[in-house]
Design a protein around this nucleic acid. Sequence first.
DNA 1: ATGAAATGTGACACCGGTGTCATAATGAGG
DNA 2: CCTCATTATGACACCGGTGTCACATTTCAT
Lengths: 344, 344
Amino acid sequence: MKNKGKATSFDIAHYAGVSQSTVSRALRNSPLVNEETRQRVHDIANQLNYKVDKNASNLRTQQSSTLALLLFEDPTTDESQINPFFLSMLGSITRACAKEGYDLLVSFQSSSSDWRADYEDSHRADGIILLGYGDYLDYQSRLQQLLDQDTKFVCWGATVDNHPDLTVSCDNYGGGQLAAQHLYALNRTDCAFIGDASNHSPEFFSRYKGFKDQFDTYGVTLNDRKIANAISTEESGYHATNSLIANNISFDSLFAASDLIAIGAIRALLEAGISVPEDVHVVGFDDIPAASYVSPSLTTVQQNTTLAGQMLVCNLLSLIKGEAVESTLLPPSLVVRASSHTKR
Amino acid sequence: MKNKGKATSFDIAHYAGVSQSTVSRALRNSPLVNEETRQRVHDIANQLNYKVDKNASNLRTQQSSTLALLLFEDPTTDESQINPFFLSMLGSITRACAKEGYDLLVSFQSSSSDWRADYEDSHRADGIILLGYGDYLDYQSRLQQLLDQDTKFVCWGATVDNHPDLTVSCDNYGGGQLAAQHLYALNRTDCAFIGDASNHSPEFFSRYKGFKDQFDTYGVTLNDRKIANAISTEESGYHATNSLIANNISFDSLFAASDLIAIGAIRALLEAGISVPEDVHVVGFDDIPAASYVSPSLTTVQQNTTLAGQMLVCNLLSLIKGEAVESTLLPPSLVVRASSHTKR
DNA sequence: ATGAAATGTGACACCGGTGTCATAATGAGG
DNA sequence: CCTCATTATGACACCGGTGTCACATTTCAT
């Protein structure tokens, strides 16, 4: 009973005195088998600690009840430091998968060379989730390949033009508007932006666009000189902010394209003797855990990662089932903390 | 060629004019096949974008080239906030797996009910990595079951008594010593400890033990009253520290069992008007990314997650291969930052 | 020339399930 | 009593590879 080799359905059939076919049916609670037999088979299976061999099962049914997650990291980011926002997404995706009875294969795509999108080809996964900052441009030809092969996949992030795939993303434009409304309400209209206002990083661009457009509706035109480019790291935010300061560019508030950038920006400001929030209000984007730890704690535009993970999984499963699915845009919300909270 | 159904080795055999057996051998670069045939088969396989069906392959070879990671979360922790330290581990484990040609199945064990250690039973994974704070006691019977079943697995964290399984862990005791040496060198001997000095959390206890023992060698006996219990969250560290303050317990330095606790402690101290590092030096444990963002930036005992991940994967693979493996203890190192850096 | 060894390939069983079809047993209706 | 529907089960092909064995062909030493 406790042999090295695991028990098979034939073993159960032997003990139960029925055929292997019946065992298979009984274990899957087919209505075709007699209740009494079903019970007996189940009991014996438990006793033998039997588990269905997924390889055999998957081979036969041609599916895997597994999803694959490809996490694209900004190649310039340090190996060990994974963007906390994506980690949060990872957690919620894992949970959503578990809830749906799917397993999750995780792969970090640290460079374009180790492209592991063959999970589906090799029948390891029924579908793929692509997670990363929307700059999938480097991978565009590969994505096209996925489409050609009729591979089921969903992307997180901004929808790029002529990118006909299914995406789930945060309403980055709306998030930018939220930040603008907040700062305007506090009478801070001389704003700097740290991020990437070019279209290289679609998410960042949308956030900036929403921010700028919202101020436009107030009749306030933001000064393009008060933009500094940064990628989503603390380090990068720190340097970008320092360059603004070094160039004597003044501002009474600062909108950062991500929390990591904002945290770096605050460090730069404080070091330069500029107080936050008194001299400069700072607003970030993402609401990573660290946003509430830093001091002053960071006002930020929150993305609902729990919901995002659920939507990604849910949409992907619909896609696999062949149902019609549309890209989803999730509403962000503003979390006000000390970095924009003028004391009175 | 671009049919819905993926190409099989039979298709290749057909086009190449050889038998399916030969195709299988050729694709695995068996020395038995003629070089010219091998090349032809490979070319055709590429052309058809053929990928070996892992289910079939795994079924036949009785292995999966997949490892499973079970991440145990502190049940009291908020759903969305995963301990950054473990996320860092997750990243390095993923990478280590990829390097070894293994896939990684990830599962969060948010409660003991959804125990997913049947990955091996169902042939989904060749081995399992258990990751969590060493308090596997709740799961002890399950672990015993794994051992009984001859399941291959490694644990991260403290080795518990009568726990004969293979573990990889940080030298928590040594890390505690490092912290003590550092504070003693700065003349801070009136230390508080926030964490869990009971044996409930083996890692935390070892850290405290090393810390205390090291001070003993200096002839300094730590006061047991200056200990406050906390689990590894910022919130918990905040409250524990507040309770010390509320009880009028004085100290000139504070050792926290984890960075999250330390960050919460700093918040509590600053709010109480106690300056860090002037009035109180603070030392954490883990070196999570946020440790360098907070202000003052946090002095901490660093665990090398990259190495830890590699060791876990490497040891597990050795175990699977049937090689003799011993539990591994990794040396921590001290990272000095502003929270214990007296300005002069 | 001949037997032995080396080389390359095909036929086929096999991994452990699932799905289909055939068949036996039981019961209802005429 | 016979027919037909219903229920429960077994036999068997099948999923797509891998490993073993047999066999044909060539190479080489005797």
